[in-house]
Design a protein around this nucleic acid. Structure first.
Lengths: 144, 144
DNA sequence: TCTTGTTAGTTACATTTTCAACTAATACCA
DNA sequence: TGGTATTAGTTGAAAATGTAACTAACAAGA
């Protein structure tokens, strides 16, 4: 059925990454979406605060590679859901420090655990060496 | 600055894939978006028709793993831009065969070439063996 | 041939994302 | 001190996506 052998889209890295990302994100989405009513950006924000501690929205933008409007809306949403709180910084009232509430911490711990299991499930088809290789390569591609 | 060492989001496969996909798709997006005014789904449709020959929208859904509404809209858009034409199948008037116009074929050839160069550029940091390994692993993750 | 079920594709609507413009606070510098 | 430039974050409108309901054509059995 192959017509033009010039270049196969199935070997195009951005396409392979897009398909893989779609394939793997759907399963995890159910966890944070159905259970906590979160959006992808909200989950990322939660994880960054949980893992790396309090930081400003700007820090989240840089670390999580998210646009400021996305972060701004995620902050509003997670604040409304009582997962995070913001504390104004008196020395520079332009930004506010974001941190998890007790409730947010619980959600983070639960989702973090779930992510770990889900990751293990996804990776079970790969040997430990392969797992390390795959993730190392992806970090290089993502410039992490 | 690390607070909770339980599980690092940077090692979570869906997250790594999402970042890598975003990182690599942006560069290519400029090509099909700015030059041809195409959307991601439209580019995928074009590539599938160019590479694998004429097929119905349903075939595209299955092969390209796209939802039928996305494909339906991409078909309408690419038809309006004169990149593809549809031919009704008399034996079953429910579906129509999609194929590239001369204009669409030129766009496909151009973009296919651009994709190849872009892919090479992305992969140049990897040795030939590493390139093969990375893509093989991704195909396994994506269940291709 | 009716009627029930399935399939291909479209349309409508709600949700998300993106983009650009905006406000408010601070920094820099003549 | 005053004026301009930056920076953090918000808001609104437009574009894109996802979901579900819909139409039209065909299939298959009573």
């Amino acid at each position: 059925m192959i017509q033009n052998a010039s270049f196969d889209i199935q070997d195009f890295l951005p396409y392979l990454l897009a398909l893989s990302a779609e394939e793997t994100s759907l399963g995890f989405q159910r966890l944070y979406k159905d259970k906590y009513g979160m959006l992808r950006t909200e989950w990322r924000l939660l994880f960054h605060l949980g893992r790396y501690g309090d930081m400003t929205a700007k820090d989240v933008c840089d670390r999580a590679r998210l646009h400021k409007t996305k972060v701004s809306r995620a902050v509003t949403a997670l604040e409304a859901k009582q997962f995070i709180k913001r504390t104004e910084v008196p020395s520079d009232r332009r930004h506010a420090l974001l941190g998890l509430t007790r409730h947010g911490l619980k959600a983070y711990e639960d989702l973090s655990q779930a992510a770990q299991s889900y990751d293990a499930r996804l990776m079970q088809e790969f040997s430990p060496e392969e797992q390390k290789t795959l993730k190392d390569y992806l970090k290089r591609v993502a410039r992490l």
